[in-house]
Design a binder for these strands. Structure first.
Lengths: 312, 312
DNA sequence: GCCAGGCATAGCCAGAAACTATACGGTGTA
DNA sequence: TACACCGTATAGTTTCTGGCTATGCCTGGC
């Protein structure tokens, strides 16, 4: 079993052609052809159906290809581990983020990371909280940006910033000119919430417990952007995190009104696997949040027990 | 990056010696030596400290070795996938099982699988329910034997058998001669339960809600065998699943008394990832349970919607 | 001081993996 | 129907590298 052969197989699976796969691998077509023949011989199975005029993966071939991708990925990570050992701020970093944070925070965060870790290449995985927890444990992502609480055994968190919630209403709505709204005013059938699975949905329902809980009665959006559009179109009102009304997302489509104190808010945090081998990269992300200009993202300062801080 | 090189590195990590590692890999010492030198050169890092008189992995080396093990494991699974594609009942099968089932069910189950899948090599992972769920999702195990409920997204289950609970008391205990015990009689400070994390603990507490719940007051055992010994030594009484008093585990150390109806019981089930590629192996395990002699393990018959059953 | 054990170096060999050239089979077009 | 084109398989050759043996060097123990 050679890694190069697995690469050829995966290339074939992607290209569905021996010659194009060979081209992609920078080898000649016969070389790839023979390599795959030998692989089939060695495994004792048929991975590729060589029919008249066209070739295709067998069912088993699909499974083998899927496993080969995993193996190649893990092998690639051997190099990554070594590279990041040389300098933890060089190389690849897989950052998970939940849907209700990613589009608003990341553009500015990535810009800010140009300062704190310019040679770190970020790969973003946007998913819901539950999946982020799995991905963290599994190691699919190196760290994740989520909303607290996020108590997962073996996972550490570091709060980044607190983000207040805002009520949004269409411009023609009676509330459009109001300065503040009380949480218990947000109620009734026309309050739009996210679909189940998004933690922000639960946080909104917690903050405004009078929102009708009957499943059918709630208007549900797949994403914050959907909800924004639905509110703008007069389907109802909703509650958004402040970042979704900040920077380039500020718009006249809807009016945003703050809550009366105590303002409902969520605490956004960074999470990573305990014992993660690149704490410097974690620090670089925290530092990037600290370095962002938008006042919404004001970093929560934490007492650090290590002695590497300014003495008090 | 070659898989053979990773194998050499892992062998070195295990043996802490170039020559012994070479021997293990069936190659000469210079070959392994050069291969690891080239690997370090290629990665651009020092993996091995070559000090006077002894050699050792660097910190980074440890990390690279850990990743190399993962890569080798995934590569090995490529062959497994192919092999099981040829015949799903040949090859390796990783079966998870919880602590309170494994020691009692597995000896008989493995014996029975000699009939249903003689060429399937079982690897057993004994762990607690929560970890089995992770391992199933991750793919560390192919299937797991757990107690219901076990509602995990993406995981399917098939009930195997129902297992009643028994009260166990020391031979000199006043209950030792009784024929039946009511659930609400099992109470007080001398009831031993498993430590937190074992699902059987919760099932016992559910079945006998009068057991003192104050953490400090409950005598706790790490395993069913510990509890059996503690009861035999007169530390208290306890509740065990029937299988733990069956077959070779039947003993005179303690007396087992059934509960009055409705008998508390647990439903033991087989769980696997939806879309798992070897349903035949799952069926073979179910068939093995069906084929077991011990009447405790009476397979729960389920209506199958596929048409491959005896017509009704 | 000598010997044994263990790693590094040098030089050689063989097998595998790469290449080029070409045959073969199917499809589409003139 | 014949021919050109596309894509894969086969044959023969070359290159490279991963393996070997032989040996040197260093350290630690007797």
């Amino acid at each position: 079993m050679k890694l190069s052969t697995l690469r050829y197989l995966v290339a074939f699976a992607d290209e569905r052609s021996f010659s194009r796969a060979a081209e992609r691998c920078h080898i000649s077509q016969p070389t790839l052809s023979i390599a795959l023949q030998n692989l089939e011989l060695q495994l004792g199975v048929t991975l590729i159906e060589r029919a008249k005029g066209h070739v295709a993966l067998t069912d088993l071939g699909q499974q083998v290809v899927a496993q080969a991708r995993k193996a190649l990925d893990e092998a690639h990570r051997v190099e990554m581990v070594a590279q990041t050992g040389k300098n933890p701020l060089v190389g690849e970093f897989r950052l998970g983020v939940i849907h209700t944070i990613g589009p608003y925070l990341l553009p500015e965060l990535i810009a800010s990371m140009r300062q704190t870790a310019p040679e770190l290449t970020l790969y973003i995985e946007e998913n819901m909280t539950a999946l982020q927890a799995d991905y963290l444990k599994y190691g699919t992502v190196d760290a994740a940006i989520i909303a607290l609480p996020f108590d997962i055994p073996g996972i550490e968190t570091r709060p980044l910033y607190d983000e207040p919630f805002l009520v949004i209403v269409p411009p023609q709505h009676p509330w459009a000119k109001r300065e503040m709204i009380a949480a218990d005013e947000v109620r009734g059938d026309d309050v739009l919430v996210l679909k189940a699975g998004n933690c922000f949905r639960e946080q909104v329902l917690d903050a405004c417990p009078d929102i009708s809980h009957a499943e059918g009665s709630m208007l549900q959006g797949h994403s914050i952007e959907t909800i924004r559009c639905m509110v703008a179109s007069g389907y109802g009102i909703s509650v958004l995190p402040a970042s979704a009304m900040s920077g380039p997302y500020r718009s006249d489509m809807v009016c945003a009104i703050p809550f009366e104190p105590p303002e409902p808010a969520r605490r956004v945090a960074l999470a990573w696997r305990r014992g993660f081998s690149r704490p410097e990269a974690i620090e670089a992300i925290v530092a990037a949040v600290k370095g962002m200009n938008n006042p919404i993202y004001r970093l929560i300062e934490t007492r650090v027990d290590k002695g590497d801080q300014v003495p008090t």
